[in-house]
Nucleic acid binder design. Structure first.
Length: 511
RNA sequence: GCUCAGUUCGUCUAGGGGUUAGGACGUAUCCCUUUCACGGAUAAAACACGGGUUCAAGUCCCGUACCGAGUACCA
């Protein structure tokens, strides 16, 4: 029987969780659930200098909103707790030491200044990529070059040191990526990466391999930016003797800016006018670091997830289905169908998805959104009227707030009239029609969409005016704008008195 | 620079040797309608380039170009 699938999403709490991170989490989740496996979240907080308070909470809330459920995490525990690397700190040194003892790693005492000096020296000597490696380490201060007693003395004196991986000089490192196939890298292209930092914390490379092994991770699904260091991780698995249980790798293609130049970054949200974060983010220490989120922009989570899932993945096999619920995504998902190329971000598709999902919602549900904006603007409205308005408008909205934005004229008598429409559509014929409608309307007791339509028809017929020529002017008089939902329905909701009032007002204001 | 990846309509993509290269978003036009939208229909729009392999290449191989990622005691 196959081993149970265990995947992890491993963000670092350095700020708001980027949309690309959400996608990585989503793919992990979809794969885990598809395989009947376990989804784990591990907080990678080994860099204390970049720690941001509140970031972890943000990650948690984001995933909750998306409906990505965690089987094991810092918040709900699990058999491999703790799930924060900072809390696992004591474990890592032993593994690093084991590497040192077995001759696969070594102590290094070089100061930042000395490292900098080495780089400038190498650059001056026209070395293309200065790195700490099999060649240069012979000239640095480490346990490979220093006498044994000197190393012991430095260690005992509490002098700061790091532990570096001793990368072999000539060796072919290969790994199989589930998305990209076989990848081969020569060890000379990898430098002697730091495994343990001088503050006693492991670097990502060590921590990730140790934790993935300990947590029995079977598949590592992560961003493309890790691909270049994946061979290094393979080397670590090898030195630890964990090759047999090494997870399978899948490196996801990056999300690019709409222009395609570089990956989508925090700043791009402002630049291109859309959010790059799932939730609104407020940085208490750095308010200008705050950002808008998809949730607050009015995207439903269903649309957000559907949109995100299709950024680099599709069900293939000739499927033309675009709308997928989380359950359907799980059912259809496979790593093999993830693309290799970077994806340019296009917010239009997200808007379209949102529109589709909003249409699927019931009028009652949508009316809730209308009430939110109504309350915020200190307006009251009867439930039945609000539902009628929602019903009328629901086909035209992209965001829930459009209900209020589009329907503002239901709640406020227009005080201004769209100058463009006034210019092109306001004329004597319209005024004649309006006067005729006003007269006929004042004789009515109450109106319905059908009755008012009939009324207008007969008035215009009597006056010898074609409907198409004046109706936009009539709309302007009643709503102040040139576009909107069915005008007859609109008038019926407004009621006879209000319609009359507005006609008179327009005649007075526009002359 | 070096290493590793990638390249089908403007965008997301289907396609796995033989297709009029399909769909979706967006765009345009038409229909519906009192207008705008919705809906329906139609259209414009792509295999980066050059070599091979093959009877046959978007599909396989090799170069070139371009694009991206990585190149930290960051993840």
């Amino acid at each position: 029987m196959e081993k149970q699938v265990r995947v992890r999403f491993a963000p670092s709490p350095t700020g708001a969780l980027h949309i690309g991170g959400v996608r990585t989490a989503l793919y992990n989740y979809l794969f885990a659930k598809k395989m009947g496996g376990i989804m784990i979240l591990r907080i990678e907080d080994t860099d204390q200098t970049r720690f941001v308070a509140g970031a972890e909470k943000y990650i948690q809330e984001s995933l909750e909103w998306c409906g990505i459920k965690l089987d094991e995490s810092p918040w709900n525990g699990g058999q491999h707790a703790p799930y924060r690397q900072s809390e696992r700190k004591p474990m890592y040194m032993a593994y690093a030491l084991r590497l040192v003892e077995e001759g696969n790693a070594y102590y290094a005492f070089d100061t930042p200044e000395e490292l900098e000096e080495m780089r400038t020296r190498l650059e001056a000597a026209k070395v293309v990529s200065p790195q700490y490696n099999a060649i240069t380490r012979t000239q640095m201060k480490n346990s490979l070059t220093l006498p044994e007693d000197e190393v012991k003395r430095r260690l005992a004196s509490g002098e700061p040191y790091v532990i570096r991986l001793k990368v072999p000089r000539k060796e072919e490192v290969r790994l199989q990526d589930m998305i990209r196939g076989w990848i081969m890298v020569h060890s000379s292209a990898i430098d002697d990466k730091v495994l343990m930092k001088s503050d006693g914390m492991p670097t990502y490379h060590l921590a990730n391999v140790v934790d993935d092994h300990l947590m029995e991770i079977t598949h590592v699904i992560r961003g493309d930016e890790w691909l270049p260091s994946a061979p290094l991780h393979v080397l670590l698995y090898k030195y630890f003797g964990w090759e047999d249980t090494m997870p399978q790798f899948a490196h996801l293609p990056v999300l690019l800016k709409p222009t395609g130049e570089g990956k989508l970054s925090k700043r791009d949200g402002d630049k291109f006018g859309f959010s790059v974060f799932p939730l609104q983010y407020h940085d208490p220490e750095n308010p200008q670091n705050s950002s808008s989120g998809f949730r607050e922009d009015g995207y439903t989570k269903e649309a957000f997830i559907n949109f995100l899932a299709f950024l680099g993945w599709n069900p293939g096999q000739g499927s033309q289905k675009e709308m997928f619920s989380m359950e359907e995504l799980i059912e259809a998902f496979s790593i093999e169908r993830i693309g290799k190329a970077g994806i340019k971000f296009d917010i239009n598709k997200a808007k379209w998805y949102n529109q589709q999902y909003l249409k699927l919602k019931s009028t009652t549900e949508l009316t809730e959104f209308l009430f939110i904006d109504l309350k915020a603007n200190h307006l009251v409205c009867e439930q039945s009227k609000a539902e009628k308005i929602t019903d009328l408008l629901k086909e035209r909205i992209v965001f829930p707030t459009d209900l209020y934005k589009e329907g503002i004229y239901f709640f406020k008598t227009p005080t201004t009239y769209d100058p463009e429409i006034v210019k092109s559509r306001w004329n004597d014929e319209v005024k004649t029609a309006l006067n005729g409608i006003k007269e006929a309307l004042s004789l009515e007791s109450e109106i319905t969409a059908a009755s008012v339509k009939e009324l207008i028809h007969s008035v215009l017929e009597k006056l010898g005016i074609k409907m198409g020529k004046v109706m936009q002017g009539v709309r302007l008089a009643i709503t102040g704008v040139g576009a909107g939902a069915d005008l007859m329905e609109t008038m019926a909701i407004l009621g006879k008195t209000e319609v009359l009032k507005r006609i008179e007002l327009s005649l007075k204001v526009l002359g």
